[in-house]
Design a protein around this nucleic acid. Structure first.
Length: 300
DNA sequence: AATTTCTCCAACCGCGTTGTG
DNA sequence: ACACAACGCGGTTGGAGAAAT
C-alpha cells in the first residue's frame, strides 16, 4: 500500500525507509536471507540483508507471508470450527489460536475472524465477543440459583438454522454453562466434580480457578483436567456424546438466564497459555502436538 | 459504462513483555 | 533493581478489487 498515510510517529523513523506493499524482489531478498541466516535479530536484519525496510516490517512480512509453512487459500470448514472453539476458549489471543492451526498466521485468523466469523455469529444471534446470545435474541426469565449445566440441556433451544452439533450451537450451550462445562463428567470425574457447579456468589468455586488456594489453584489442575477441558472444546463429537449420555433436559431453557459466574479465563488468574502449552507439549505441528480428536477435527 | 459502496486483507502502529547488561 | 533494546502481539487502517446501483 504505497499510499498509506504518513503518521507522526512511524515505527521506523529513519528517513528513506520504504513502506507499503512488498515487491517480489524484496520478498526474494528477505526470504533468501532468512533461510540463510535464520529468524531473529530483526532490528539489524534490513541492514544486513540490504533492505530498505524496518525490522518490524521484515519480521511481519516473513511471518505472515514468506514462511515456507504458510498455508495459502481459503479457511476450510474444519479450520473455521477450530477457530471458533479456540476463540471461545482464548478470546482474541490470535497468536495462540494460530499456533494451534498449522499454516495459518495470527493476522490471517484475526482478519478472518473480523471479516467472516463476527458477521456469521451476529447473524446467528451470538455475540462474537462473548459467544453469548445477543440480548435481542435471548429471553431473560427465571432466576436460576444453581445451574447444572449439562450440554444436552439446551439442545432443543437451538435456533433452527443452527445444527445442534454446530460450533455455534455448542458456543451457546457452553455459554450457558460457563467456560468449564465442556468438561466431560464421564471422562474425568475429578475434573467434573471440581468444576461442574458454581454460583454467582461464589459459594463453590472450582478448584481449577485457583481461588480457594491462595492463587496457586492452577497447580490443582492436572494436565488431565486440561486435556479434558481442551478436548471438550475442540472435539465436537465428544461433546455431542456427552449430550446424548446426559439425560437432562429443560424445556424452559430458552427462558433460563443462568446465574453462572461467567469467569473469563483471561481474568481469572488462570494461566491458560501455560496450561495449553502443557496440553500441547509440542508447538505448532498439529500432527505431533494436538490430541487425536483435535487432529481429526482439523483434518490435518 | 460510470460511479458508488462494500469487502477483504496486507501492512502499520503502539504498547506490553522479555532479555540483557 | 534498573534501564534499555528487541521482540511479539492485538487493534486498526486504507488501498485494491468486487459487487451493487
Amino acid at each position: 500500500m504505497e499510499g498509506r498515510r504518513p503518521t507522526a510517529t512511524p515505527c521506523c523513523s529513519k528517513v528513506g525507509m520504504k513502506r507499503g506493499p512488498w515487491t517480489a524482489d524484496e520478498d526474494e531478498v528477505l526470504a533468501s536471507f532468512v533461510r540463510r541466516e535464520g529468524e531473529g535479530r530483526w532490528r539489524t536484519l534490513p541492514k544486513r540483508a540490504g533492505l530498505l525496510r524496518c525490522g518490524k516490517s521484515c519480521r511481519l512480512r516473513w511471518l505472515n507471508y514468506l514462511r515456507p509453512s504458510i498455508k495459502r487459500g481459503p479457511i476450510a470448514p474444519d479450520e473455521e470450527d477450530l477457530i471458533l472453539r479456540l476463540h471461545r476458549l482464548l478470546g482474541n489471543r490470535w497468536a495462540l489460536i494460530a499456533g494451534r492451526i498449522p499454516g495459518r498466521t495470527d493476522n490471517e485468523i484475526k482478519n478472518y475472524w473480523n471479516t467472516h466469523l463476527t458477521k456469521k455469529l451476529i447473524k446467528q444471534g451470538i455475540d462474537p465477543r462473548t459467544h453469548k446470545p445477543l440480548p435481542s435474541s435471548t429471553d431473560h426469565g427465571s432466576p436460576a440459583q444453581l445451574v447444572s449445566c449439562h450440554p444436552a440441556t439446551d439442545r432443543d433451544s437451538m435456533p433452527q438454522e443452527m445444527g445442534a452439533g454446530s460450533s455455534e450451537a455448542i458456543a451457546i450451550r457452553n455459554d450457558r454453562c460457563g467456560y468449564f462445562h465442556g468438561l466431560d463428567p464421564h471422562h474425568d470425574d475429578v475434573a467434573w466434580q471440581n468444576c461442574n457447579v458454581f454460583t454467582t456468589d461464589g459459594d463453590q468455586m472450582p478448584a481449577c480457578y485457583g481461588v480457594e488456594d491462595g492463587g496457586k489453584g492452577t497447580d490443582a489442575c492436572t494436565d488431565d483436567v486440561f486435556s479434558a477441558l481442551f478436548d471438550s472444546f475442540v472435539n465436537e463429537d465428544m461433546f455431542n456424546t456427552n449430550c446424548s449420555q446426559d439425560g437432562n433436559t429443560n424445556e424452559d431453557d430458552n427462558n433460563m438466564t443462568p446465574q453462572v459466574e461467567m469467569i473469563d479465563p483471561m481474568d481469572s488468574g488462570l494461566d491458560l497459555e501455560g496450561l495449553l502449552e502443557d496440553v500441547f507439549t509440542t508447538p505448532v505441528d498439529l500432527d505431533e502436538g494436538i490430541p487425536a480428536q483435535c487432529k481429526d477435527h482439523a483434518g490435518k
